[in-house]
Design a protein around this nucleic acid. Structure first.
Length: 447
DNA sequence: TCTGGGGTCCTAGGACCC
DNA sequence: TCTGGGGTCCTAGGACCC
């Protein structure tokens, strides 16, 4: 049995924890660069504001309706997320952190222990909900069902129907059938815009309809094995298990960093400066996860809008001879890759780096004859010695940046233009709230 | 030289998610 | 002027190898 805990309007809820005056008022959070809406309070949704609405298009409405607008504050959201996940991890046997604001729970086998002394799974879910709210201030809803897809569906209904008290347990075939009938097919987990269109054109309108299609039909029209699994999960047969997080953090298979620039850039040095900063950030994440990257990708994009839309992005990939997490090595490689795709005269609006082929250190460190055991003292392979020095250097870098703030120590390549001035690629964040929980200077003062 | 099957690796693209 | 960022998984095709 799976549980799904999903924070309600997570980013808005985080801001409300520190600004109670925002309760009951329409609030939206903007994406990086204050580009578009990525989180809305219930009141903002009621005003017709949509996920992904570009800010410049809804600016007037936001003003007219007195909507409270904030730039995103990922430092704060990340820290609040850790608190929620930590509580869940301490309360149930296994948790899979699915995203910053969602976690799957393993509730298998729990039911018999609960009855009658502790109540049923619905009661447990209720206690979780109350517990998260009490400890973090974040409201959540919980869905419980035999498959992940059904747990998502239950969660969605728990959110929509206030009468359910924030919790829905699909504990019988009848209740599952009822739930499937309530949900439009486009709201099923795994059905996006393209598939929704295809499905409704074929007369499949609800999750219940989708649960009735044949496996071959699902394979043919919904992306092969993915579609087949989706339908099975709706029918109540689990096709995916829980991937528990051992240390309460999310382990990634690739790590990236990309940004839309504050203004379009045409000078290669400026784009390289941005890329260097992105490499530094991504490598930091990589080291925090304790991994080395074997594959590095760099991409640069021209505008998606306006007359020359289409064919707007180019990328270059490199398999590194030796996996690394060293910012200096990765920065040098990224510069090489940029050289392969750079078009003089073009104007770029965005760039990014992706690190993939992640592996733990040591995995590739076999000796000349493939031996895994350590050699005699003083005879470690050269690669390991280099890696040791690099690791020390990077640990020192991370330590300084952790203590004195991100970007305290960085490569010269990642700095802005000589002589100071604004960093050319930095974007807008006009309404960012303080990092209340992670920066001493930003602690709230109570008078 | 041609033929065939099977495996791996890489790339590009497409769909989806939060 | 102004349209996010960071992920996942799967498929198909080509190169190359045995």
């Amino acid at each position: 049995m799976f549980g799904l805990v999903d924070c309600n309007n997570f980013y808005v809820s985080c801001e409300r924890v520190f600004q109670p005056r925002l309760e009951g008022r329409p609030v939206v959070i903007l994406s990086n660069n204050d580009g578009c809406i990525i989180s809305r309070s219930a009141e903002a949704k009621a005003l017709g504001l949509k996920m992904g609405d570009p800010y410049f298009q809804v600016k007037e409405q936001l003003r007219r309706d007195s909507v409270q607008v904030f730039s995103s504050n990922y430092t704060l959201y990340g820290d609040m997320s850790r608190r929620v996940m930590h509580y869940l991890g301490a309360t149930v046997p296994a948790v899979e952190i699915y995203s910053i604001d969602e976690a799957f729970l393993d509730l298998g086998g729990l039911e018999q222990h609960l009855t009658p002394y502790l109540g049923n799974l619905t009661d447990l879910a209720q206690r979780l909900r109350v517990g998260v709210k009490a400890r973090t201030g974040i409201p959540v809803c919980v869905g419980v069902a035999p498959t992940k897809t059904l747990a998502k569906l239950a969660n969605r209904l728990a959110k929509k129907d206030a009468g359910l008290g924030g919790v829905l347990y699909l504990d019988s075939g009848e209740r599952r059938a009822w739930a499937l009938g309530q949900v439009p097919v486009g709201d099923v987990w795994g059905v996006g815009r393209q598939y929704a269109q295809k499905l409704t054109a074929a007369g499949i309108d609800s999750a219940a309809d989708l649960a009735r299609v044949s496996e071959s039909w699902a394979r043919k029209f919904l992306g092969g094995v993915v579609g087949a699994r989706l339908v099975r999960e709706l029918q109540g047969y689990p096709c995916a298990g829980l991937a528990p997080s051992e240390d309460g953090t999310l382990r990634r298979q690739s790590i990236s960093c990309s940004r839309t620039f504050g203004r379009p850039l045409r000078e290669r040095a400026s784009v390289l400066g941005a890329l260097s900063a992105f490499v530094a950030r991504a490598a930091e994440k990589l080291r925090r996860q304790g991994d080395l990257a074997h594959v590095l990708t760099v991409f640069i994009s021209k505008s998606r809008y306006g007359p020359d839309a289409g064919g707007h992005s180019r990328s270059a990939v490199l398999t590194l001879p030796v996996p690394t997490s060293d910012t200096r090595e990765l920065t040098a490689r990224a510069a090489q890759l940029l050289g392969r795709i750079w078009e003089p005269g073009a104007v770029y609006v965005k760039a990014g780096v992706v690190m993939a082929g992640l592996e733990a250190p040591g995995g590739q460190q076999l000796g000349l004859f493939g031996e895994a055991a350590p050699l005699a003292a003083g005879l470690y392979p050269v690669g390991a010695a280099v890696e040791g020095r690099s690791a020390q250097m990077m640990a020192a870098l991370d330590g300084l940046n952790a203590r004195f703030g991100r970007g305290t120590v960085q490569l010269a390549a990642a700095l802005g233009p000589k002589g100071g001035g604004p960093v050319p690629w930095k974007g807008q964040a006009a309404w960012r709230t303080p990092a209340y929980t992670t920066r001493l200077e930003d602690l709230m003062t109570v008078n």
